[in-house]
Nucleic acid binder design. Structure first.
Lengths: 295, 295
DNA sequence: GTCATTCATACCCCCAGGGTACCAATCGCG
DNA sequence: CGCGATTGGTACCCTGGGGGTATGAATGAC
C-alpha cells in the first residue's frame, strides 16, 4: 500500500530499459545483488510481478510495461519539482525560454522586446537545445516556457499556437529536382534525411522527433550536408529565410502539411513571468500575421 | 543535485499545509525533531530556503510555494504509477470507469453495451465518486477513464466531449419563480446552492468543483433539499430527467452556458481497453445526437 | 558433460532516519 | 520585567535497511 520510493523507481526503470540486472546495476553504479533485492522488494510492495526472469533473459510483464511508462513520468515530475524549486529560490530568478536555435519563426527578437516591456517580466534566459528536446526540458523543469514545432509530445504541457507557415524542402541547387518550381513527396522518395532514414518513411511532417539521433546538432551543419547533395531537409519558411545560400534551393512541397510554431509551458504554471511571455508572444504573432496578410 | 525522495516530499507537503512542524509531525505519525531535520536536509539538497521559521510562525518562501505545487503533482504521479501497476498486475484486469452516479447523460448503459461488444474490452468496473472527484481519481490511478462535466481540471488528462445539453435550474415547485417558464441568473440572486454559497457567486457553471464540501453525497439528498425550497440546484437536462418529482420544477436559465459531458483519461494511456471505451462512447454519443436532432 | 552467463541467496557492515532529552527564542501576561 | 508556555532547533543514541562481497543455482552453448 505504501508509495514506492524514488530510488526504487530509478532502479526499476534502469532494469526495465536494460533488461539485464548486471548492466542496470553498472549503470546505477552499484552491485547487482542489492539491485535484485530492491526490485524484489518493489514487486512485494506492489504485490505484482514486474519482470519475468530466467537466468538467461529478463522480460517485462504487462504490469511492468505500465509501471515503466508511469515511473518515467513520475520521475520526471520529481526532478521537475526539484529543479523548479531551485530556480525559484535563486536570488535573481529568470524566465528560461527553451528553443532550438533559429526555430523561432523570426519572432523571437520582437517577442523578447514586447515581453521585457511587461511589468511582470523576469530577465529572460535562452535555453538552447536540440530539436524536439524542448518539451522534455519543460517537463523536467529545465525551462519555464518553450518554442516548439507542432506536432510535439505535449503531455503535461499547455500550448498556444503562434505561427503557421509552409514547410519547404531544402535541396542542393545542383539537384535535378531544383529545376522544378514545386515538388510532391513522391518526388523525394529515396532521398535521405539528415536523421538517416528515407524521405518518404511515413513521417514526413518536417524535422523528426527526438530519439532518432541527429548527426549534426546545429542547422548550419545540416545545410552543409544538403549543399553537398547527400541529404534533403524539410524546413519551415522562416528557417529557410535564414539560410539562403547559393548552393541551396528551397522548393514548396505540395502535399506536405504546414508547420506550426507554438508556445508551450507546463500545465500547472502559475508564474506571472510565463503569463507575460505568452501574452507578448501572442501579441507579436498576431501583429505579424496581420502584416503578412492584411485582411 | 540529487532528486528528493518521496518521503521528503510528503514531509514537506505536510509541513507546508500545516505551517506548523508539530502538527505536521503528528499528521505524519512521527516526532517533530526528525521532521525538522528532514526539511532542513531537503533545503540543503535543493540549495533553497523553503520555509521561513520563527519560533512562533512558519511561512512558505516563494520557492516553497513552487515546490508545494510541484511536489503535490509529483506525489500524485508516484501514487498513480503504483496504483496502475497494481491494477495491471491483477489476474483479471478491469477497466475502471470513474463517474458521479447519474451524471452520465443517460448514455452509460449504451456505452457499456457498445464497449463490451468490442474485442479489446476488459470487464468494466464503475468507480463512483463525489462530483468533481473524477479527474483526481484518474490522476491518482484509481480509475482508467472517467465521465466528467466540463469545465474540469484537466491537468495530465486527455478528453473527448460527448454530449452538450442545457443546464436547468431545479426549484421547489412551490417557489414563486417556478411560475415563470424561463429564468435568468439575476432572478436567482440570493438563492442558496447546496454547497452553501449564493447562486450568483460568479461560478454559475453548474455544480461546483471539489473542495467546497457538499452536504449531500448523492443527488437524491440534494433534490430533497431543493424540494423543501431551502436551496436551488443547477443540473444538466439528462440529470433532471431522472429526478422528476411532483414537488420539483426545472426551468431553463437563459444566460447559463450549456453543460458538456466529456470523457477523460490519463494523457499517457496506451490501454486498448480505454481506447475501446472511448470509441464506444463517441459512437453512442454521435448516434444519440443524430437521433435527437436529425440533420 | 562442461563451462560461461546471469540472477538469487546469505551474510556482514555502516549510516541514515527515527526517537528522546534538552536548549533557545519569542510571545503573552500579571 | 520576569516567568511560563509554545515551538522550533540541537545533541545524542539506536535500530533497520540499503549496499557490499562471496557464493549458489539454473540455463544455454558447444
Amino acid at each position: 500500500m505504501n508509495d514506492p520510493e524514488v530510488r526504487q523507481l530509478w532502479y526499476f526503470v534502469a532494469v526495465a530499459e536494460e533488461l539485464h540486472f548486471g548492466r542496470a546495476a553498472a549503470r546505477l553504479g552499484m552491485a547487482q545483488p542489492p539491485l535484485s533485492r530492491a526490485i524484489r522488494d518493489l514487486e512485494r510492495q506492489l504485490g505484482v510481478a514486474l519482470l519475468e526472469r530466467t537466468t538467461r533473459q529478463v522480460r517485462l510483464t504487462a504490469a511492468g510495461e505500465v509501471l515503466l511508462r508511469d515511473a518515467r513520468a513520475a520521475l520526471e515530475a520529481v526532478t521537475a519539482a526539484a529543479r523548479r524549486a531551485r530556480e525559484a529560490g535563486r536570488v535573481s530568478p529568470r524566465l528560461r525560454v527553451a528553443l532550438k536555435a533559429d526555430v523561432d519563426g523570426g519572432l523571437l527578437p520582437q517577442i523578447l522586446d514586447a515581453y521585457c516591456a511587461d511589468g511582470a517580466a523576469l530577465p529572460p534566459e535562452l535555453v538552447l537545445g536540440r530539436f524536439g528536446e524542448q518539451p522534455q526540458a519543460l517537463r523536467e523543469g529545465r525551462a519555464d516556457v518553450g518554442l516548439v514545432l507542432c506536432p510535439f509530445d505535449d503531455r503535461g504541457l499547455d500550448r498556444e499556437p503562434l505561427l503557421t507557415e509552409p514547410l519547404l524542402v531544402a535541396l542542393a541547387a545542383a539537384d535535378p529536382l531544383a529545376a522544378r518550381t514545386e515538388l510532391c513527396l513522391a518526388d523525394l522518395a529515396g532521398r535521405k534525411l539528415p536523421g538517416g532514414s528515407a524521405a518518404s518513411d511515413g513521417r514526413p511532417t518536417g524535422p523528426r522527433r527526438p530519439g532518432a539521433g541527429w548527426p549534426a546538432s546545429n542547422l548550419s551543419e545540416i545545410f552543409s550536408l544538403v549543399e553537398t547533395g547527400s541529404v534533403v531537409f524539410f524546413a519551415p519558411a522562416s528557417v529557410a529565410r535564414r539560410y539562403r545560400r547559393p548552393a541551396l534551393a528551397y522548393r514548396p512541397v505540395t502535399d506536405l502539411p504546414d508547420s506550426t510554431l507554438a508556445l508551450a509551458w507546463p500545465e500547472d504554471t502559475s508564474s506571472p513571468a510565463v503569463a507575460a511571455f505568452v501574452r507578448a508572444a501572442c501579441t507579436v504573432a498576431a501583429t505579424r500575421v496581420e502584416s503578412v496578410m492584411p485582411s
